[in-house]
C-alpha cells in the first residue's frame, strides 16, 4: 500500500515535469510551427544554471530563480539570433538546424563545466519526509515539485485562456497573417512565446536536477519522451499535453516499479529479470503505437485550421 501510494505520487511528479517540457514544445510548435529539438538543451541548461547559481549564492531558491531567468534570456537570445530565420521553412530544416544546436550546446557545456556531471544539493528543509496520509510519508522536495508544476500548469491555463496576451497567442496559432494584419507585433509575440517555452523547459530541468545528476545529454532522453507525449496528446494542444504527460509519467514509473514483480509471477525468475527492464522501457512506446492505431491525430488534437 505504502509502495503503491509512493510510486503513484512519483508517477504524478514525473508526469508533471514532463508536462512542463511538453507544454513549451507544443506551444512553440502550435504557434510558430517550429519543431525545436534543442528544447531538451534548454532543459539541460536550466539544470546547469541552477547548479552553478546555487553554488555561487549558497541558496537553492535564489539559484533556481536566477537559473529560471537565465534560461528565459537564453531562449530569447536563441530565438532572435537563430531560430527566427527558420519560421516558415520546411520542418526538415527545423530538425537539422536544431540538431546542430544540440551538438553546439552539448559541446559548449562540456567546454565550460567539464565532462563530469554536477550535483545540486537540496537545502535541509526540502529533504524531510512529509506525512501525507496517516502513516505514509513522502519526500518534501518531490511534493514541492508536484505543487509547483500544478501551479504553473494552472497559471499557464489562465494565462492562455484568460489574458490579452493569451488571446493573442491563441489568435496567432489559428491565423498568423490575420493577426499581423490587425497590427499586432507578431515578431515580439513569437519571441515572447519562445522565451516562455524556454523558461518552462528550464524550470523542468532545474527541478529535476536535485533528483538526478546534472549531466550532458540529460535533455535528450527526456525530449524524446516529450515528443511521445505531444504525439499522444495531439500536437499543439496544451490540454492534450497535460493529460498525456500525466498518463506517460504514471505508466513509465508504475511500469518500472511493478512490472518485474508481475512478470515474475508469470515467467521463471531468470526470464522475468531479463525481460522486465526491456519491456518496461518499451511500455510507453507500445502505448504510443496503440494510440496511433486508434487515433492517428492524437487523443486531443488542437482545432484544425
Amino acid at each position: 500500500m505504502l509502495l503503491v501510494v509512493e510510486q503513484f505520487l512519483n508517477g504524478l511528479q514525473f508526469g508533471l515535469l514532463l508536462f512542463l517540457l511538453a507544454a513549451g514544445l507544443t506551444l512553440v510548435f502550435g504557434i510558430m510551427d517550429l519543431v525545436n529539438l534543442a528544447h531538451g538543451s534548454l532543459y539541460m541548461m536550466g539544470a546547469y544554471f541552477a547548479a552553478t547559481f546555487a553554488a555561487w549564492t549558497g541558496s537553492f531558491l535564489l539559484g533556481a530563480l536566477l537559473a529560471l531567468s537565465a534560461t528565459l534570456v537564453l531562449g530569447i537570445v536563441l530565438e532572435m539570433s537563430a531560430l527566427r530565420h527558420l519560421y516558415g521553412r520546411d520542418h526538415l530544416d527545423h530538425v537539422l538546424a536544431t540538431f546542430g544546436l544540440i551538438l553546439f550546446f552539448n559541446e559548449a557545456v562540456r567546454l565550460i563545466w567539464g565532462p563530469a556531471g554536477l550535483a545540486l544539493p537540496l537545502p535541509a528543509w526540502l529533504t524531510v519526509p512529509v506525512p501525507i496520509l496517516p502513516g505514509i510519508h513522502y519526500p518534501a522536495y518531490r511534493l514541492a515539485i508536484i505543487i509547483v508544476a500544478l501551479l504553473v500548469a494552472l497559471l499557464l491555463y489562465l494565462g492562455v485562456m484568460r489574458t490579452r496576451i493569451g488571446m493573442l497567442i491563441r489568435a496567432g496559432a489559428s491565423n498568423r497573417e490575420m493577426i499581423g494584419a490587425l497590427g499586432i507585433n507578431i515578431k515580439l509575440l513569437y519571441t515572447l512565446v519562445f522565451g516562455l517555452g524556454a523558461a518552462l523547459a528550464g524550470l523542468a530541468g532545474l527541478m529535476q536536477a536535485p533528483i538526478l545528476t546534472v549531466q550532458i545529454g540529460m535533455g535528450e532522453n527526456i525530449l524524446i519522451l516529450a515528443f511521445v507525449i505531444i504525439v499522444i496528446g495531439g500536437i499543439g494542444s496544451i490540454r492534450g499535453a497535460f493529460l498525456a504527460a500525466i498518463f506517460v509519467g504514471m505508466i513509465d514509473t508504475l511500469g518500472r516499479a511493478f512490472l518485474p514483480n508481475l512478470l515474475r509471477q508469470v515467467l521463471s525468475g531468470a526470464a522475468a529479470s531479463t525481460a522486465a527492464p526491456a519491456l518496461s522501457s518499451m511500455l510507453i512506446y507500445l502505448l504510443m503505437a496503440i494510440v496511433l492505431v486508434v487515433r492517428p491525430e492524437g487523443l486531443f488534437p488542437a482545432n484544425r485550421r
Partner: peptide, 24 residues
C-alpha cells in the same frame, strides 16, 4: 498512419525504443 512532423517524431521514438531494448 501519420505524416509530417508526427512521422518524424514517431520514427524517432521507435528507434529510441530499439535503443532501449538493445540496452536491456
Amino acid at each position: 498512419r501519420t505524416r509530417g512532423v508526427y512521422f518524424i517524431m514517431i520514427t524517432l521514438a521507435f528507434a529510441q525504443m530499439a535503443y532501449y531494448v538493445a540496452s536491456g
